[in-house]
């Protein structure tokens, strides 16, 4: 798929999709969206970049191996559950804090940490599969 149009558009497309995936992730707490679908969108963004410009630029761009990203996501999700231990509530209880930054109230929670973990797990594992499949085609 090395057409000029696709290769020119792909980087913009990818960056837009990545931003949109974060938006979907954050929106997910009260409205449709969330870590899983956000991770899928991000993974397809990277897959598009891989199809347009080759797999190795993608691997260079994300710095870490996709599986390591998935591992970190899993780690975050587990940590999100353990935080409950220090507040004396059962495992995986949603805990909220409301810090004010520049006059805006931010709603932060362990649920969000868990959801980011899910996002990274999906992003990592799907990207890993997609990149492996794209690589095979050329080699």
């Amino acid at each position: 798929m090395r057409t000029l149009i696709f290769r020119t558009v792909a980087p913009y497309f990818t960056s837009l999709m990545l931003i949109y995936s974060v938006f979907v992730l954050l929106r997910g707490h009260n409205e449709p969206g969330g870590g899983f679908i956000g991770g899928l969108i991000a993974a397809s963004a990277l897959a598009i970049y891989g199809i347009a410009c080759g797999v190795s630029p993608v691997r260079r761009a994300i710095r870490f191996h996709p599986m390591a990203i998935a591992g970190f996501g899993l780690f975050m999700a587990a940590i999100a559950g353990i935080i409950s231990l220090f507040v004396n509530v059962p495992f995986l209880t949603g805990l909220w804090i409301y810090p004010e930054i520049f006059g805006v109230e931010l709603k932060l929670s362990t649920t969000l940490v868990f959801d980011i973990g899910v996002y990274l797990v999906v992003l990592g594992s799907i990207t890993s599969t997609a990149l492996a499949l794209e690589e095979r085609e050329r080699d």
Binding site: A68, G71, F72, L74
Partner: peptide, 12 residues
């Protein structure tokens, strides 16, 4: 899960 995740991050 914690140690499994850590192992995955240290895959190489």
């Amino acid at each position: 899960f914690l140690f499994g995740a850590l192992c995955l991050m240290q895959r190489k």
